[in-house]
Amino acid sequence: MQIESRVLSKDAIKGFTAKVVPFLSIMSLVPDRKDDQLLVDYGFNSFPTFAFLDAEGKLLLQLQGREQKDWEEAAARLARQSELRAKWAAGGEDKALAGELLTLGLELGNLELAEAEALAAKAELGDEERMRYEEGLLAILSRMKLDAARKEGKRLAEGFGEAFAKRLDALLLDMEIMALVEMQRGGDLDATIKGMHELYAAGRKPDDKARTFLAYWYFLTQHADRTNDLALFREAWGNVRPLWSATPG
């Protein structure tokens, strides 16, 4: 990995690793090796992934940055969050504290739904903060299991406007398609194709910028192929082909 030679091999990294517990998780595919699939257990899906965990192994923050300064900054923000949470827990439930804790948590992307809602209920949110809050709620839902996201999303949608409901629907569709793709990865191609067609038959189609757009239409080409549905094939293939043509190599 490039990051190892570019960042982790440098002497300067010691200044950071001395302040944390540096844990290296290597997925090796060696059979029966303990914790070999830890990355998967945490729900991560790419290499490299960096994260802060607490002493119990609870995920505190998945890190986006790839530089030491990003990690140091994130550690400082987690420390600030921990300090504010302690104040909040000690009964310092004022509006400013709630606002700061909510903003910080939404920026870090590590709030649980209940905490976000409790803070939002106490904080005074302006229009911009409210937009960020709605955005943050969708991000929180996206980290949930599909059933829980559906249930909580439905509840939340009642308190927000049409735009939120629309974005929520797009998010849930994206999660449903991902769940169907996972079924195929687990070996149940028939269920995936059937499920994808059920979404299509219900008029549910992902936006062309959605990460699941290609998978959705690809499995519909399969359905069309199986059922000799030429009209569907043309539509599905019409959506897949431009992306396929753009695939390098």
Binding site: M1, E4, L8, F16, T17, K19, V20, V21, P22, F23, L24, S25, I26, M27, S28, L29, L38, L39, Y42, F44, F47, P48, T49, F50, A51, F52, L53, D54, A55, G57, L60, W71, A75, L78
Partner: peptide, 12 residues
């Protein structure tokens, strides 16, 4: 302290 976890692979 916090655990700083780096997830990588050896089979790439």
């Amino acid at each position: 302290k916090l655990v700083f976890a780096y997830f990588t692979r050896s089979y790439s």
